[in-house]
């Protein structure tokens, strides 16, 4: 099958599987307003916390309020995209433990695609909306030099940020192949590492910086885009770093999934 044809088929199948999830949720979970509100609440209360702190200090390590809000918002925005379009990553544990992954393996469709398209989290809408609002606010309130190129790159950075977030989610959730029980908190722990990336990582120790920039590269979701957009960088090529990180994360996630799947297939359930 040619690359073009298989890409089209992949997108087509993703669209079909995703709309199935959407129909299901519209049928059953009529309370998704609660989810959206809780996401909005969480993000806003986080920013209230920032505001309370910045009420007493002018900056943290040279970073002003709106610059940090931008980083916060990038973390939440990408989480929103992950929840809305790729919630399936968080359901991998359930699939593995209940043997429902078997049903997916019986179909002539890539298991990764089926896993990614397996869920929808309406709370994502809340995160995406507030996230974009906050990013918009931050970009206007901070004094920076705009150009057409910068705008294009900004959009690119948002896309790569989402790709990195989803890859990390998937990679973390493949732990389900090794940790076989319902209370697996490993993915949540990895998710919590994103907490560090809400702030300029330069305030942390070298160890943490390496953790969040190399091992679990959340820094490329928020910090490096901020670094570039707010003209804090010495190198004009810094904007290339997040796309490279996205490819790296995607590859690692794919590899971990395949290895985990092989283990699943040899041990059954």
């Amino acid at each position: 099958m040619s690359i073009l044809r298989s890409t089209r088929r992949t997108l087509f199948l993703y669209r079909r599987l995703f709309s199935t999830q959407l129909k299901a949720i519209l049928e059953y979970q009529t309370d998704f307003f609660i989810m959206i509100i809780s996401a909005v609440l969480t993000q806003l209360l986080g920013i209230v916390f920032l505001w309370v702190v910045y009420n007493r200090i002018p900056d943290i390590n040279g970073w002003t309020f709106w610059e940090v809000v931008f980083m916060y918002a990038m973390i939440y925005l990408t989480e929103g995209f992950g929840s809305l379009f790729f919630e399936g990553t968080w359901r991998l544990g359930g699939l593995v433990n209940r043997g429902e992954l078997d049903v997916m393996l019986l179909r002539p469709v890539s298991p990764i695609l089926q896993v990614l398209a397996n869920g929808i989290g309406m709370n994502g809408i809340g995160n995406i909306v507030i996230g974009f609002i906050m990013i918009g606010q931050a970009l206007t309130k901070v004094d920076l030099h705009w150009s057409f190129g910068k705008l294009v790159i900004a959009i690119l950075l948002i896309i790569t940020a989402v790709a990195i977030r989803v890859s990390i989610n998937l990679a973390a959730n493949t732990s389900a192949f090794w940790i076989k029980n319902a209370g697996n908190a490993f993915p949540i722990m990895i998710h919590n590492l994103g907490e560090f990336a809400k702030y300029p990582i330069t305030i942390f120790s070298m160890g943490i910086q390496l953790l969040v920039a190399v091992l679990v590269p959340f820094a490329f979701v928020s910090f490096f885009p901020a670094y570039y957009l707010f003209d804090k960088s010495t190198s004009p090529w810094i904007w290339l770093a997040p796309p490279v990180a996205a490819i790296y994360c995607g590859a690692v996630a794919y590899l971990l999934f395949r290895i985990g799947l092989r283990k699943y297939e040899s041990a059954g359930n």
Binding site: Y28, Q29, T30, D31, F32, I34, M35, I36, I37, S38, A39, L41, T42, L45, G46, V48, F49, V52, V53, N55, R56, M122, N123
Partner: peptide, 28 residues
Amino acid sequence: WSTGSLGIVWARMAVTSLFSGALVPLSF
């Protein structure tokens, strides 16, 4: 009252985080 989501739990966590003083001491 929710039909299958943990939304209420997440909302609780956010509210508790702030108002319990876990995020920042209430004196701030």
